[in-house]
């Protein structure tokens, strides 16, 4: 009885601690969302409920809204292109590294994979800048969309590799050999045996890539195209901040993103609930 009560107190205390820190983590987003419903230049003063930020954001003629959506589109484009390239390069890279027998080669590849993860992002960015400056001087190639994508691939590629390798380690090594013995070609064995086994790792790597790329500022600032005023969301926000302050429509945009995230979150809760119940049901049957 006493123990039960002690457990309950412990549980309440733990929940309060977790949700308190969560609240702190979400506070800035909640704050932005609240002030997205009022028409003021800067946050902090409430000026009556107003949806004009939202109507402006979806007004095709609104210049600011156009700029925001364009930046959002660019951000997604870079994240997805870089994410796909990283996922392909990184998946095959991981399979390769996993199967290398030469210990020195293996450990040096592992070391190189760690570099962009551990290295300060500014150093990675600067090193790419000097490389691209070298390209410009010798081949006359200006920084363009591809250099930006390369920058983001450098940033995200290692995360794909470290997401895929554990799945390879969990895999039964004789499966591939068995497929070969049963007459599969090496390519068939690769696509029909290895790849399906490591799909969860590949998906994790892709999601991590996209997440990191969406969030990036530093690499983008140093590798973005020189001409055409190419802006991602972070570059756009930074530029606006130094010019005239962040436009109000940006708050509405952030609030919408936040809402999407909340929906995903609730979806995840519900899905795990259902999965758990199903698991319970099936385990009862198993008994």
């Amino acid at each position: 009885m006493v123990n039960k009560r002690k457990d309950l107190i412990k549980k309440i205390f733990a929940k309060v601690a977790i949700y308190f820190v969560l609240l702190l983590m979400y506070a800035p987003l909640i704050y932005i969302t609240v002030f997205s419903f009022t028409k003021v230049k800067t946050t902090g003063v409430w000026n009556g409920f107003n949806l004009s930020n939202y109507t402006d954001l979806f007004n095709a003629k609104n210049k600011t809204a156009q700029a925001i959506w364009k930046a959002a589109g660019n951000t997604m484009l870079v994240a997805i292109v870089a994410g796909l390239i990283s996922t392909v390069l990184g998946t095959f890279g991981a399979i390769g590294i996993h199967n290398i027998r030469n210990r020195h080669l293996k450990s040096s590849l592992n070391f190189v994979t760690q570099i962009p993860i551990v290295n300060a992002e500014i150093v990675t960015a600067v090193s790419l800048l000097v490389l691209f400056a070298f390209f410009k001087n010798t081949f006359g190639i200006n920084k363009n969309f591809m250099t930006l994508v390369i920058g983001h691939v450098v940033l995200t590629l290692p995360y794909v590799v470290i997401s895929v390798i554990p799945k390879l380690e969990q895999m039964d090594p004789s499966l591939y050999e068995a497929a070969l013995d049963l007459g599969a070609t090496r390519t068939q064995a690769l696509w029909k045996v290895i790849i399906p086994e490591i799909v969860p790792g590949i998906l994790t790597g892709f999601m991590l890539s996209v997440t990191l790329s969406l969030d990036d500022f530093v690499i983008t600032e140093f590798t973005k195209p020189e001409s055409g005023n190419f802006e991602t969301i972070s570059i756009y926000v930074d530029n606006q901040l130094s010019k005239s302050g962040i436009p109000q429509q940006m708050r509405a945009f952030t609030a919408i993103l936040f809402a999407v995230i909340l929906i995903v979150m609730v979806g995840m809760f519900v899905k795990t609930r259902i999965d758990n119940n199903r698991l319970k049901a099936s385990s009862y049957k198993g008994d």
Binding site: L22, M25, Y26, A27, P28, L29, Y31, I32, T42, T43, G44, T75, T211, L214, D215, F217, I233, S234, V237, D238, L241, I246, M250, T254, L257, F258, I261, V264, M265, M268
Partner: peptide, 21 residues
Amino acid sequence: YIFLLPMWINFVIRTIGLKEL
């Protein structure tokens, strides 16, 4: 995951939101 989800919103925006708050 809920601790990681804010990372989907650009950190420049989040940082400025935090500063204003």
